[in-house]
Computed example of a mutant assay.
Amino acid sequence: MATNITWHDNLSYAERAKLTERNGATIWLTGLSASGKSTVACSLETYLLKKGIQAYRLDGDNVRFGLNKDLGFSEKDRNENIRRISEVTKLFADACVISLTSFISPYRKDREEARRLHEEAGLPFIEIYVDVPLEVAEQRDPKGLYKKARQGIIKNFTGIDDPYEPPISPEVHLHTDKQTVNESVETIVEYLKKEKIIA
């Protein structure tokens, strides 16, 4: 634990939002591998940026090339992976940027902790459940991960030999086996407009 540190206050989130005329938020997409999280997040990021809305996507694979390159896929490492991302997205939201995360984030308690961090800071946290049946995810398998998990090559793979705990009451529930990418993005955008996060 760090010692001899002091938090330096400056502008509040409300003051930043007023000055920038922007709202920050964390949009947390969770679901099985190959559920469509990253595809939806990429499309949503493009939509927001084209509208002049500050947005940035954090992807479960991409962050492991830098910020979380020291972490594996044990339960302990997955917990730490999500803890770090929760803190990063909180900073983005406080800076009046909409951060989009596409992480399996299989454990409910980790996602609840991410929500708590945001809510205590008065920052919007929107959980999106990107829902797809396991058999559909396995059929898609764009990276060949399910096949390797079934062969025992990959251990601790979510949905095969590691659990996935679905959200109990997400703000938005997508069914990407029934919805197109555009329809999924439209569903999220409608929610953001309803909550006055974007105009």
Rank of each mutant, 00 (worst) to 15 (best):
T3I: 12
T3P: 01
N4E: 15
I5K: 13
I5L: 12
T6C: 11
T6N: 14
D9N: 13
N10M: 09
L11W: 08
Y13G: 09
Y13L: 12
A14P: 00
A14N: 10
K18P: 01
R22L: 10
N23F: 08
I27L: 14
I27C: 05
L29V: 06
T30Y: 08
S33Y: 00
S33V: 02
S33H: 04
S35E: 07
K37H: 03
T39E: 06
C42V: 13
S43R: 10
E45I: 01
E45Q: 14
T46N: 12
L48S: 03
L48C: 04
K50E: 14
K51R: 10
I53P: 02
Y56S: 09
R57M: 13
G60F: 05
N62Y: 09
V63N: 09
F65S: 13
F65G: 14
G66P: 05
L67R: 05
N68G: 04
N68F: 10
K69A: 10
K69R: 13
L71A: 09
G72W: 15
F73G: 07
S74W: 12
S74R: 09
E75M: 08
K76I: 11
D77V: 12
R78L: 05
N79S: 15
N79P: 00
N79K: 14
K90M: 11
L91A: 14
F92Q: 03
F92H: 03
F92S: 04
A93V: 04
A93L: 02
D94G: 06
A95H: 05
S99G: 07
S102C: 06
F103Q: 06
P106Q: 02
P106E: 02
D110L: 10
R111A: 08
E112A: 11
A114Q: 06
R115T: 11
L117F: 11
E119S: 09
A121W: 00
G122R: 06
G122E: 08
F125Y: 14
I126H: 07
I128G: 02
D131K: 10
D131N: 15
V132Y: 01
P133Q: 10
L134Y: 04
V136M: 07
V136Y: 01
Q139H: 10
K143R: 14
K143D: 06
K143W: 11
L145E: 01
Y146A: 00
K147G: 00
K148C: 02
R150E: 01
R150N: 04
Q151F: 00
K155E: 12
F157I: 11
T158H: 01
G159P: 01
G159S: 06
D161N: 12
D162W: 01
P163E: 01
Y164G: 02
E165K: 08
P166T: 09
I168K: 15
E171R: 11
E171S: 13
H175I: 07
D177I: 05
D177C: 06
D177S: 13
D177K: 08
K178M: 15
T180Q: 08
N182A: 15
E186C: 04
T187L: 13
T187N: 13
I188M: 08
K193M: 08
K194P: 03
E195H: 12
E195P: 02
K196S: 15
A199Y: 10
